[in-house]
């Protein structure tokens, strides 16, 4: 680029193009993060119908939700659901990732399709199917029906993360442990699981985040046991109520923390090789 002195006009042109492309990327990011940013700003703003210029600073909306027992119940339900979902989904994801890593068998592509398909099916369809199925087997309206549905939905994410980690493992590591006399179970416990640990932690946090934000299935199968997103859905259906911004800011904070922790474990810890 810098060597092309003779074609100054085109290099200025291409540099201009490069900078406008970068500016465009910034615009895309503004579009993506604007709703998150405004939700946080408006949660501290006294206006009932927030716009700019902003009115005065207030903690009123936070006080409102702090004093609302429904919010507390919903938070408790959400925590139970996402913790249980994370544990089940990560366990299922680990089993599947290891199977895919180690074994070849007939119908393996059907097996993988069965595992990986759920996230590609629209949530509203899954919601209706789950509602009907849980009523059929007499299990609707329970917290654990949400947990089961969320594990189906999030296990593929856990599987993918752990599978990527297994890709980084030297195939000889496992055989070396066997040759040294360790049983398959012991090799699993002392070689494979420790190697996958960052990915397992990452999968736990990521599946918890997905579960914490999911509202369609929760809304259909939860009955009276509302989770936080279902509560938000019901408030939003009523009127414009800025306390949604306060709850929303809390939800963003929780899920962003979960996702960032997941990514830190995945990208930085997983970078360290096994020695």
């Amino acid at each position: 680029m810098s060597g092309q002195q003779s074609t100054t006009s085109t290099s200025i042109g291409s540099r201009l193009l490069d900078w406008s492309l970068r500016g465009y990327v910034v615009l895309v990011f503004v579009f993506i993060f604007a709703p998150i940013l405004f939700s946080v700003v408006f949660s501290f703003n006294s206006a009932r119908f927030p716009t700019i210029p902003l009115e005065s600073f207030t903690l009123h909306w936070y006080q409102t939700i702090w004093n609302d027992p429904d919010v507390w119940t919903a938070v408790r339900n959400s925590l139970i659901v996402s913790v249980c979902t994370a544990l089940i989904a990560t366990l299922l994801g680990f089993c599947t990732a290891y199977t895919d890593y180690r074994y070849n068998f007939r119908f393996k592509s059907a097996y993988l399709a069965l595992v990986l398909l759920p996230p590609t099916i629209p949530l509203i369809i899954m919601a209706l199917a789950m509602l009907a199925w849980f009523s059929k087997i007499g299990a609707s309206g329970q917290l654990w029906s949400i947990i089961i549905a969320h594990s189906v939905l999030t296990a593929p994410f856990a599987m993918a993360i752990i599978r990527l980690r297994l890709n980084q493992m030297d195939r000889d590591l496992e055989s070396a442990a066997w040759n040294l006399g360790a049983s398959e179970w012991r090799t699993m416990r002392e070689v494979i699981v420790p190697f996958c640990k960052p990915a397992i932690v990452s999968a736990l946090f990521l599946t918890a985040a997905v579960s914490f934000d999911e509202f369609a299935i929760s809304w259909f199968v939860s009955g009276l046991n509302k989770t936080v997103p279902v509560l938000i859905l019901e408030i939003v259906q009523g009127n414009i109520d800025p306390q949604v911004n306060a709850i929303g800011t809390f939800v963003f904070l929780v899920s962003m923390t979960l996702v960032i922790v997941a990514q830190i474990f995945f990208t930085f810890r997983a970078g360290k090789s096994f020695s």
């Binding site: 709703p35 998150i36 997905v210 934000d213 997103p229 938000i232 911004n245 996702v259 990514q263």
Partner: peptide, 22 residues
């Protein structure tokens, strides 16, 4: 990419409510 993945895992519902106000 790190930042682009974050919104995918944060509440879509709240973001839509935010757009409603905006």
């Amino acid at each position: 990419l790190f930042f682009l993945i974050i919104p995918f895992f944060t509440s879509y519902l709240v973001r839509i409510f935010s757009w409603y106000v905006i």
